[in-house]
Design a protein around this nucleic acid. Sequence first.
DNA 1: TGCTGGCACTCGTGCCCTTCGACTGCTTGT
DNA 2: ACAAGCAGTCGAAGGGCACGAGTGCCAGCA
Lengths: 337, 337
Amino acid sequence: MLDERKATILRAVVTEYIETAQPVGSGHVASSTQVNVSSATVRNDMAALEAEGYLAQPHTSAGRIPTEKGYRFFVDQLGGPGKLGASESQQVRSFFSHTHGEMEQMLADTSRLLSSLTRYAAVVVGPQHEVATIKSVQLVSLSPRIVLAVLVLSSGAIEKHSVELSTDTEELVVNAAAVRLASVIVGQTLAAVATIDPEISLTGEASDVATVLRAAFVSLRGDHRHDDQVFIGGTSDMVSSFDAVRTVSEILRILEQQLVVVSLLEDVLDRGLSVAIGRETGNEALADCSIVVAPYMVDGETAGSIGVLGPTRMHYDQALSAVAVVATRLGHSLSEG
Amino acid sequence: MLDERKATILRAVVTEYIETAQPVGSGHVASSTQVNVSSATVRNDMAALEAEGYLAQPHTSAGRIPTEKGYRFFVDQLGGPGKLGASESQQVRSFFSHTHGEMEQMLADTSRLLSSLTRYAAVVVGPQHEVATIKSVQLVSLSPRIVLAVLVLSSGAIEKHSVELSTDTEELVVNAAAVRLASVIVGQTLAAVATIDPEISLTGEASDVATVLRAAFVSLRGDHRHDDQVFIGGTSDMVSSFDAVRTVSEILRILEQQLVVVSLLEDVLDRGLSVAIGRETGNEALADCSIVVAPYMVDGETAGSIGVLGPTRMHYDQALSAVAVVATRLGHSLSEG
DNA sequence: TGCTGGCACTCGTGCCCTTCGACTGCTTGT
DNA sequence: ACAAGCAGTCGAAGGGCACGAGTGCCAGCA
């Protein structure tokens, strides 16, 4: 659908604009690429590209800048991620060789790695708790009326719920409740636990133990909708790509609402490595932003996703490579552990 | 040291500048305050104030803006926090009446409350783990060679350490180790645990149990220097107070380094409610920022601190009131639980 | 002595104008 | 189908000018 030469010209405009943030004129394109045609010819093609919606001009006498459609074409024809630069891939290797143990810490560090690789904001979403099974449950008395329920999930994540009791309760009673609770919910998923009717597990228990169990079930059923772990890093780097404080403020507002961020990433999760450009993100406030996302696999299953958020004029090739490499390395690293 | 009238004039300049972000001229001051003197007199005093370092002028024919010393005087003579506006104090009341259980969640929400009250960035630092005693410890096998050590502290906080074993280990062995570990460290503080010599607690244990214990001790001794919980909210609000993206980027960089933020807050922790203006923060990148901090008390002891970070031209009275009120309310709320 | 009114002076800001140059679109020639 | 040239557009940059907000200083008045 697009002339070979037009494609080359469009490519040139996009790369140049990404580099300089300045509208690109026909002269530049003619002189600086492998298109051996005069600027006049380039002009004609650029006019056509504009008519087809790939380019736009800010004002009559200025050069052209890519539209979202232009970026989209550029990204599509890029065809998958390239290779990482030497120093970057060195950085990734060294990161994953030094990395150790604690998953939470590791995900946080990964977001820092990714933002340092790309100079954009990096988002790392941890594994969903919903699918993980409960490995262990424990009730700890913090004060006579407050008990902390601590769940350990098979993913290594921890979930805590504080349970408030209406009467002072002895530790012995709490411990009895803990044993009973464990026998009912260990091995289940969190989602399954939410559907359990507490009453059936209360038969044969002393009334004070039953009271504790009832309260615990209520607490466990409570909100664990947005307890995905989200790690965001490198916002300060990304900010430098924009020139209006207004814009920056809006973007930060989005990033602060972690729910929004998570849903952004998860929308594209089943598509593998993918890019959302400008309004494709589905969020008006991100009109000047693009997102590069990839899921990562742990033990053969999609666990979570990572991504970078930058300006629409981002270095897509670098971002794609970085996200792709880090996603696979992260997955491996989490699998073997 | 400062004339009554000079003080009034200085006050007027500061409030006006905070409001408008524009240099303030003698005319404005003379006409808009309760200083019933002519602009000429004001001019003389302003010249004196400049000579003494309270004011500065950007260029010869412009008005004056406050220096750090000027803000400092302004804040000092403010003498403690005022009362909160009606709608704000309503917001605080409703927040703390609806609040419930989970401390971590509550601290995060508090940072949102504080930023929404002040329109600046809010920082909430959770209680130090170092002083809390260990309420319970549990070892959970995630895989044959990976064990998760889960500590519950008296503060209600949870700490997890993953322990990697060099050989596959049965759950029975892990459980035995857990019992032994609990008998040694429950009731201690984390700091105390770090000083325990593992070997003395190994006597009489089977060698495989001893191996697990040794690994667990190493893991527990490991880094829990920066596991203070820090919650930062409202950066997007604060950003709007600045006009250079450059500045914004630097400030965000600081906020991303949570260690720096924590030390900023803790430096002033023993001083009670206090304010650091510009370079007083001790951080060059925060030259255009001020911080208002207060500790909060739980059960009669200083637990953590909260604060807001805004531009040097912040609304100090509102910020002081908000921080003061939220700190005490937060303390109460955490104490009764 | 302390405040005021007045005056000359400084300079940044906004405005208009021009120039400049980087573009474009179109038309014509090969 | 491409190249070359040309006229036209329009923003950015720069100079000149008037304006006005502000200042410092001085002389006069309570």
